[in-house]
Design a protein around this nucleic acid. Structure first.
Length: 825
DNA sequence: GACCTGCTGCGGAATG
């Protein structure tokens, strides 16, 4: 990847790092023995080098802390979420270490490290080791692992914001809690120092607490904010003719000419899209309409072959490319010096994410980051105004830490049992010092111990679940097979089962979900990795293809996540809408949208911040009700089901639901008793949990979450590397386990966790609750129109696609809509 | 022809 070691070396020799405004503060805190969190802005990827002189300095000042020996052993452990970065950082760090005159070796340990290299690591630990959270745990599964860490002076966790709020973060918390107790305090009473580096997020104080654990009183926490005044220039791309611009949709391809103008006027542009299929579509369309870009355009997303991705990254770095279409696969880590423009297609869904992406341009000190926001439908343009405002006001999303993840804990305990074995009491005490397990109850801990030794209440008959044996109180794995399988399935990332896509001649293109391939017939044509391909045969989870000359072809879609609009951006959007309602027209986005707002006012209403808009409209499909909480898609999903349930309690009705980030629709055959529902506490939070359970298939949601939980907890074996099992197989086994536990062991920690996760992550119960409470304070405004309003239209389109009505209906409707629109405006 | 979606990230053995 893109960090040149020469650059780092020069940068270091010229002592540029001393010019960082936070350097003095950082150095003082480090030399005083503090642990803490450094809030470095995105784009100062070299902060790492700063730590090396600190450590060298510390050694000079406190030689008594370092025993005189030929091999100091591991001094600094550097943890990064991105494996791909470790190699370049290693080279760069080695040059810095050499420049400092330290007789140190810098090494890496990741999945890329060969067996031979691992053997060498065992013989001689490098003084600086770069690794990932997963590899740290693999180290904890080695015999005599405490020896590795006994001389450790400092741990640095890079990009901590990326891990916080994920199970990878929890796994890292666990790893740190163990390692902390292996590096004893030295003569200076100096403790192992732990420093995180994080981009700006809303809860930096909490981020520090999570990283350092709840036992940090002795150590002391410092939070250092870098406050580099990075200039960011943000512009929305305004459609030339807003009246002809789409009211719904997500592709945004209509604005291609404007985007290509930006590309032409920039040195190098990154075009960020929200989905992989969208990346494929934009790439193809650009090549089709602007063939002169052949050779200087590339694409990058998570399902493409690594070799291709590496090539793209290097080409970007070496200024060989003019434009790269990508997903968030290019969000992280890399210094792409030549990039001077960033284009975001569609909603970035959050302020912090947009900032991160904007920071990919002008990636050097003093340079300005330039980012464009390209709306994919009219109303989304308002998000551009909201984004700008949020960035001015420095409103950033928080990353909420995950608490009491029992699956991760179960995996961790088996890891410790695989290496030297563990005694439950001290480990329990150690767990209680972590943020994630501070509230861990003894009985749940015992249940997990019981499970890994005896298979719990239900699985005691099956050998494969009896992993850990107890010898004189020591919990230990003795079976080589169990140990091996455990090492094979460590980590918290549960991938989708996907098929490799390969040319008959051997070239590897990437991976596509099993489900997509199974829909294709042999001989069918599809587009992938920017190529037109023909499916030739499918063999053992590999789809063999050959080049095709056909222009047309389906583009694969992946079942990815569905990120909702963040609550911060949602709130700002409501703020902007309030301005619109008050007639404030200071933003160019708002000015451009005037025709749309005028129509909305004419047909319905634009809600103030103190109002909750509900629209009624009747079509041949039935009675439509549109609600506009502007709270993000997931909250709307839960709220739509909840409202449907509560309304049908008054008068029986079947509803079909549709939603987007701005609002949701309830559609039914009969007139809805709306007023009655409003009068009888439609927005109430009393019985909320019960009503949710009643209105949604909570069991099904939990079952789906359980699949990942079972994987992480080690209940299912996913097969040997390169020999993936079919997803049907895995689905069946996790589903069966879920059934068995639910029936015979209702208190099972993992099942409880599945329900909890469904509520928390799928439904965003906390946000739903807060949203209902907000609605209670608002004045309800109900309007009725003869046709869908501009606000309603995108939701209607969402509903149409969901119900899979035939295309003509949809087209007809769209055509009719625009005719009416022209008449009205 | 299309206003019909949905991210990222890491690991890994033994045998023939």
């Amino acid at each position: 990847m893109g960090i040149g070691q020469e650059i780092i070396s020069d940068w270091f020799k010229s002592k540029k790092w001393q010019q960082f405004p936070f350097q003095k503060e950082m150095e003082a805190a480090f030399l005083d023995g503090y642990s803490g969190l450094l809030n470095a802005p995105t784009g100062s990827g070299k902060t790492f080098a700063m730590f090396l002189p600190f450590i060298a300095d510390y050694i000079n000042k406190h030689p008594e802390d370092y025993q005189t020996r030929k091999n100091n052993g591991l001094q600094l452990l550097w943890i990064t979420p991105l494996r791909a970065l470790t190699n370049d950082i290693r080279k760069a760090m080695q040059t810095v270490v050499d420049d400092l005159g330290l007789p140190w070796k810098v090494g890496t340990r990741t999945g890329d490290t060969s067996a031979k290299e691992k053997q060498e690591l065992k013989k001689r630990q490098p003084e600086v080791l770069l690794t990932t959270p997963e590899s740290l745990h693999l180290m904890l599964a080695l015999k005599d692992y405490p020896k590795i860490f006994e001389n450790l002076q400092a741990i640095v966790i890079d990009e901590w914001h990326e891990l916080l709020g994920t199970k990878r973060g929890v796994q890292l918390e666990l790893g740190l809690s163990r390692v902390k107790n292996l590096a004893p305090a030295t003569s200076q009473a100096k403790q192992l120092q732990i420093w995180g580096i994080s981009a700006t997020i809303g809860n930096l104080d909490q981020a520090a607490e999570v990283l350092l654990g709840v036992d940090t009183k002795k150590v002391g926490i410092k939070l250092i904010r870098a406050k580099l005044n990075k200039k960011i220039l943000i512009e929305s791309v305004i459609p030339e003719n807003i009246e002809k611009f789409s009211w719904a949709g997500h592709l945004g391809i209509k604005l291609l000419p404007q985007v290509m103008e930006i590309v032409a006027n920039s040195k190098t542009t990154l075009i960020f899209t929200n989905t992989r299929s969208q990346t494929e579509i934009w790439y193809m369309t650009i090549l089709e309409k602007y063939p002169e870009y052949a050779g200087i355009i590339a694409m990058h997303h998570g399902s493409l072959d690594n070799e291709l991705r590496n090539w793209v990254e290097n080409a970007l770095h070496n200024e060989l490319l003019k434009v790269v279409v990508c997903t968030s696969s290019l969000d992280l880590g890399v210094d792409f010096r030549p990039v001077d423009s960033v284009v975001q297609i569609g909603s970035p869904k959050g302020v912090a994410r947009f900032m991160q992406r904007a920071g990919r341009s002008g990636h050097h000190p003093g340079a300005t980051s330039k980012a464009w926001f390209v709306p994919t439908h009219s109303l989304e343009l308002l998000e551009g105004a909201a984004l700008k405002q949020a960035i001015i006001e420095e409103v950033f999303e928080s990353r909420d830490p995950i608490l009491l993840a029992m699956d991760v804990l179960m995996q961790y305990l088996v890891t410790l049992a695989v290496s030297d074995g563990f005694l439950p009491e001290p480990i329990f005490r150690e767990l209680k010092t972590t943020y994630a397990y501070a509230d861990l109850e003894q009985k749940d801990f015992n249940q997990i111990l019981d499970f890994i030794t005896k298979g719990g209440k239900t699985l005691s008959q099956y050998d494969e679940f009896l992993k850990v044996e107890i010898e004189n109180g020591l919990y230990k794995v003795n079976s080589r097979k169990v140990a091996m399988r455990h090492r094979l399935s460590m980590g918290t990332i549960v991938g989708d089962v996907s098929m490799r896509v390969k040319f008959l001649t051997g070239g590897y293109l990437g991976s596509i979900e099993e489900g997509f391939i199974s829909k294709l017939k042999i001989g069918d044509n599809f587009h992938f990795a920017g190529r037109s391909l023909e499916l030739v045969k499918v063999k053992e989870m590999t789809a063999f293809v050959r080049k095709s000359t056909k222009k047309k072809g389906i583009i694969p879609s992946w079942m990815g996540g569905r990120m909702p609009l963040s609550s911060q951006l949602s709130a700002m959007l409501r703020e902007k809408l309030d301005e619109v309602a008050r007639g404030v027209e200071k933003d160019i986005e708002v000015q451009a949208l005037q025709p749309l707002f005028q129509l909305q006012t004419k047909l319905s209403h634009i809600p103030r911040n103190t109002e909750f808009l509900i629209e009624k409209f009747t079509s041949r499909d039935g009675h439509h009700l549109f609600f506009y909480p502007f709270e993000g898609r997931l909250v709307h999903e839960g709220m739509a089901s909840l409202f449907a349930y509560r309304i049908s309690k008054i008068k029986k009705a079947n509803f079909s639901l549709a939603m987007n980030d701005y609002g949701f629709e309830l559609l039914t055959d009969d007139e809805v008793v709306l007023q009655q529902a409003l009068d009888s506490d439609l927005f109430s939070i009393d019985n909320l949990l019960d009503d949710i359970q009643q209105s949604l298939n909570a069991t099904e949601m939990a079952r789906r979450r359980f699949r990942d939980i079972a994987h992480i907890a080690g209940l299912v074996f996913t097969g040997f590397p390169g020999k993936a099992m079919k997803s049907r197989h895995l689905q069946a086994s996790t589903s069966l386990l879920f059934e068995v536990f639910s029936e015979y062991e209702s208190d099972n920690v993992l099942v409880r966790q599945a329900y909890h996760e469904a509520l928390q992550f799928q439904l965003e119960e906390y946000r739903l609750r807060a949203a209902l409470q907000r609605l209670q304070t608002l004045k309800v405004v109900i309007t009725e129109s003869e046709q869908p309003t501009p606000f309603a239209f995108p939701i209607l389109v969402d509903g149409l696609s969901r119900e899979k009505l035939i295309t003509e209906t949809m087209e007809e409707r769209v055509a009719k809509m625009s005719m009416r629109y022209e008449k009205l405006s």
